[in-house]
Design a protein around this nucleic acid. Structure first.
Lengths: 95, 95
DNA sequence: GACGAGTGTAACCTAGAACGTTACGGGTCA
DNA sequence: TGACCCGTAACGTTCTAGGTTACACTCGTC
């Protein structure tokens, strides 16, 4: 179980991909084949990395699509876990 | 890169959780706190495992929510990768 | 054969995410 | 001032997750 808030994948894209290459949001969006708005939303944490976007990132930046999507999964899961106590679920097979 | 079609998480829930415990879909849905329709859709591959559902499964069956959601991620990614060739994306940082 | 349980699923709803285009206002800098 | 980049608001479409209700099917069992 992770203790701290995992960073949104958008931050990682910005700091590890765009900034080192000196890319603007407009340039990167064009390269990825999505609108500037779509990329902007991801970079600012207002949208998630979809499976298709993960593949796009892997093509553009040469990393694995799995790693991109896993980052999003961890981020989503961390927020879902915060509401674990609010879920009314019966234990069927106690550990 | 996975070669073969990964199984949908619904199949795993059915064969590894419901059947060993002799649970009906109706019983399991009630325990999970979702409608019978919702669980049925997941079991038959017509819906995915959401982050919240992954937490529900982890409570009911004592496994980690991460493992449930990762299975869904791998499934989604496999299908997204099949369309990799159709995406028009420029390579920005060739490996 | 009749009946109830379990199941799949169709029809309807809401909410939200992921896309798109267009357009506007605020920076920064030559 | 003008050019460029950025965030974002407003509008749209499409898809997914979730709900309720209702129907038809397949089983056992009585």
């Amino acid at each position: 179980m992770r203790m701290h808030n995992p960073p949104h994948p958008g931050e990682i894209i910005k700091t590890l991909c765009l900034e080192p290459l000196g890319l603007t949001v407009t340039q990167a969006a064009a390269a990825l084949g999505v609108s500037r708005k779509t990329l902007s939303a991801i970079l600012n944490g207002r949208a998630g990395v979809s499976p298709e976007m993960a593949v796009r990132l892997s093509i553009a930046f040469g990393t694995s699509s799995e790693s991109w999507l896993n980052q999003q999964t961890q981020y989503d899961l961390w927020h879902a876990e915060r509401r674990r106590k609010q879920l009314r679920v019966a234990k069927l097979a106690p550990a």
